[in-house]
Design a protein around this nucleic acid. Structure first.
Length: 474
RNA sequence: GUCCCUAUCGUCUAGUCCGGCCUAGGACAUCGCCCUUUCAAGGCGGUAACGCGGGUUCGAAUCCCGCUGGGGACGCCA
């Protein structure tokens, strides 16, 4: 039996695609690609009250942004309710499931009593053997779990895990309103879609023995299971909103590159020796379930930020320039309609990219390239735009004005000449110039900077500073 | 409470299966130095870990048992 590897990512649309979900999706995707298999997207929306269309599109948008393209789907479970109902009836007819007339309040009361007595919290099986005839009273349907014996899960990551069947309860597979529940539809769909490997968070490990019995009820062989360790927050609790941005799209909006997030996520739990940075193709080639660790990992934003800076440094200038456009607009540094010369912007990006950890940061620095007039940091002006500095700037202005070839090399010569003439260090001229041109005290190399800003804008900014300096003196 | 998973630097991890090559390697962060017109980037170096207790063995991070810590699950949620 040489079945094609088929995996699925099955989020429930009750929230955004978060970091943990994205990693589950990523590992499924990698496993599929590595094995030339099929990656299915399935929306688990059986809980109609909590599922929304908006979340469905957010999830798909997040996956698309990360370039985790799915081969089939999205399938929605709400579209398949009739099929599930037939399945439930089959089990009912075979005596593998039964109607339960217990009321939620009653069950809740029993649960509370069990907790207070320190007893296992488990359905007592009240309706299991009383064989109620079907009636018009709404009833939930429960699956008959074996009462004794062991269920063994051979997990591809965790190894052999043994469960005592006495721990298993008769779970509800169909609510009294006729809608099916998670543990049942997962199995039904995984059978129907011929899923060969279930790769999911290890919070589902305890569901696995229950699901195995449902497979058996349908006379089906369960697929292979691989339970991924969880991602934790800095305080080692489950990653949540409290830990900052957990939505994948929030990272996009903060200026992260999808490749960087993917690279970060894959190293959370998976490793290949000492290698930290992987191309997409390397990941596909090298990925294996065997190299996934067993223990939970703490999400570390600093390392993600570092990876992002690495990816930015390695990115093509023009591509980065294009990508920074939305950030420039968002920051109000350019207008929606403004035409920006991408080739020119790319030159600025080239100077900035090894100093920017995010696209957002890059766009901020791009400000002093694209803006007509800049704001000058008062502290910087205080320090560098005093009499001396302004005098050098005037000299610089004249020399740059006269300069025949406006190139980095020639600009450097201008600076050297002024420094020599005044018998001061290069920094004495470079810092005032930097403040005048960028508004602050840190920037790329001053010569390259001037070349890219261009003669016209450079002269204008130097003039502004000089005239302002004279005014403040009075 | 019951069940399940898990345990190497602050964090991600290599090493664990098949004990000696581990005076435990890499990366992020951090500290110092170098480079330098600023800020970065880069280079070099430092601090920093096998949770604890018992075994087994000539020898244990690695195998076994217990403890402790952490996480998860126990819904007519998924």
């Amino acid at each position: 039996m040489n079945q094609q590897v088929t995996v699925r990512f099955a989020p429930s649309p009750t929230g955004h695609l978060h970091i943990g979900g994205a990693r589950t999706a990523l590992f499924n995707w990698l496993f599929a690609r590595h094995n030339n298999g099929v990656f299915i997207l399935r929306i688990e929306d059986t809980d109609r009250s909590r599922s929304t269309e908006e979340y469905i599109s957010h999830i798909m948008e997040g996956m698309s942004w990360l370039n985790l393209e799915w081969d089939e789907g999205p399938f929605r479970q709400t579209e398949r309710f009739d099929i599930y109902r037939d399945y439930v009836n089959t089990l009912l007819n075979q005596g593998k499931a039964y109607r339960c007339y217990c009321q939620p309040e009653e069950l809740e009361r029993k649960r509370q009593i069990a907790i207070s007595l320190g007893q296992p919290i488990k359905y007592d099986g009240k309706c299991r053997d009383i064989n109620m005839p079907s009636s018009s009273i709404p009833a939930a349907v429960r699956f008959k779990m074996p009462k004794e014996g062991l269920t063994i899960v051979n997990d591809l990551i965790k190894g052999q895990v043994i469960f005592d069947n006495s721990q298993l309860e008769d779970l509800v597979i169909m609510r009294s309103d006729g809608t099916p529940t998670y543990n049942f539809v997962v199995v039904a769909d995984d059978i129907y879609m011929k899923i060969t490997h279930i790769i999911r968070g290890d919070d589902h490990l305890n569901n696995t023995p229950k699901q195995i019995h449902i497979y058996e009820a349908f006379d089906c062989l369960p697929p292979q299971f691989a339970h991924l360790p969880m991602i934790l927050g800095h305080d080692k609790s489950r990653l949540s909103k409290r830990h900052g941005a957990t939505s994948v799209l929030a990272y996009r909006d903060m200026g992260y590159l999808p490749e960087a997030l993917v690279n970060y996520l894959v190293r959370l739990g998976w490793s290949h020796g000492d290698q930290e940075i992987f191309t997409r193709n390397e990941l596909i080639e090298l990925f294996s379930l065997q190299n996934i660790g067993k223990s939970a990992a703490v999400f570390n934003p600093e390392k993600l930020l570092w990876l992002n800076s690495q990816y930015i440094m390695d990115s093509d200038d023009e591509k980065l320039a294009e990508m920074s456009l939305p950030f420039l607009i968002k920051k109000g540094l350019i207008t929606q309609r403004q035409k920006v010369d991408i080739n020119w912007l790319a030159k600025a990006v080239c100077l900035l990219k090894e100093r920017s950890k995010t696209l957002d940061e890059l766009a901020s620095s791009l400000g002093y390239f694209v803006l007509d007039s800049i704001k000058i940091d008062p502290k910087a002006a205080e320090k560098f735009l005093k009499v001396e500095g302004l005098r050098y700037i005037s000299e610089l202005r004249e020399a740059l004005h006269e300069l025949a070839t406006f190139s980095t090399a020639e600009i450097e010569k201008v600076f050297s000449a002024i420094a020599e003439r005044n018998n001061v260090k290069l920094g004495s001229i470079a810092q005032p110039a930097r403040v005048a041109l960028t508004g602050g005290t840190s920037s790329p190399g001053i010569f390259e900077l001037i070349e890219v800003i261009g003669r016209e804008r450079t002269l204008k900014r130097l003039d502004e500073v000089v005239s302002r300096g004279i005014i403040t003196k009075h």
